[in-house]
Computed example of a mutant assay.
Amino acid sequence: MTQIDLESFGQFIQKLVREELEKFSNTQNHGNEKEFYTREETAKLLDVSLTTLFHWNNDGTLKNTKIGKRVYYSKNEVLARLNP
């Protein structure tokens, strides 16, 4: 049986907890990233009106995706529009 002093044991536990918190933090940050934006969020990000988004969808400038009765815009397409 191996014995360790109390201080070494405390440091070991702190290291394990720190590593687990970092893993948890990284998974939480990735989980918060959206794949789609609502019409309102998209209009705000692009600084345009909802009417402009409607016209852009009709002319193919920025296509939307409907899920049920709700309209969403792909994160990738919105970012591409932000950085032409």
Rank of each mutant, 00 (worst) to 15 (best):
V17L: 10
L46T: 02
N76T: 03
N26Q: 14
I4A: 12
N29R: 15
V17N: 10
F9Q: 09
K66N: 08
L46F: 04
V78H: 13
R39W: 00
D59E: 14
S8W: 05
E77N: 15
T61H: 13
P84H: 12
L46D: 08
W56N: 03
T52V: 09
N32I: 09
G60T: 07
V71R: 13
T61E: 14
S25Y: 12
Q14G: 08
G60Y: 04
Q3Y: 11
Y73W: 04
N83E: 14
T27C: 02
L50E: 13
D5H: 12
Q11Y: 09
N57I: 01
F54G: 12
Y72G: 00
T61V: 02
E77F: 05
D47C: 06
E35V: 02
N29M: 11
N32Q: 15
M1Y: 08
N26M: 09
Q11R: 15
L6K: 14
N26I: 07
G60K: 00
D47F: 00
Q28M: 13
R18E: 15
H30P: 00
Q11H: 11
K34F: 00
T52D: 11
L53D: 01
E19P: 01
N76C: 01
N26V: 03
K44A: 09
L16H: 08
L53R: 03
L82D: 10
E19K: 02
N64Q: 09
F54S: 13
F24Q: 14
T65D: 04
R39H: 01
V78L: 11
F9T: 02
D59P: 09
F54V: 08
T61W: 11
K23D: 13
Y37G: 04
M1S: 09
N64M: 06
N29V: 12
K63Q: 04
A80Y: 04
Y73D: 01
R39N: 03
K15Y: 10
K44C: 04
